[in-house]
Amino acid sequence: MTRVVVDRELCVGSGSCEMLAPDVFEVDDEGVLAVLEPEPWDDDVPAVRDAVQACPTRALTLVD
């Protein structure tokens, strides 16, 4: 099972992940990233990989 891990020290809430995988990531009204699906469905995994890649602060990792 693939799992999304956020490094809270690095995340600045840029929302780049949300643009690419809106079903999995959402920056809330306080600017804090919420991971809606910490263990994303297989269908979402490619978008999540793009989001991990695109994160400007490299705050996201995928753990298999």
Binding site: V12, S14, G15, E26, V27, D28, E30, G31
Partner: peptide, 16 residues
């Protein structure tokens, strides 16, 4: 930088 960025980033989220 991180502290101030967090204040303003909430105004610039995709949903906002």
């Amino acid at each position: 930088h991180a502290k101030i960025r967090r204040i303003v980033s909430k105004t610039f989220t995709p949903r906002m």
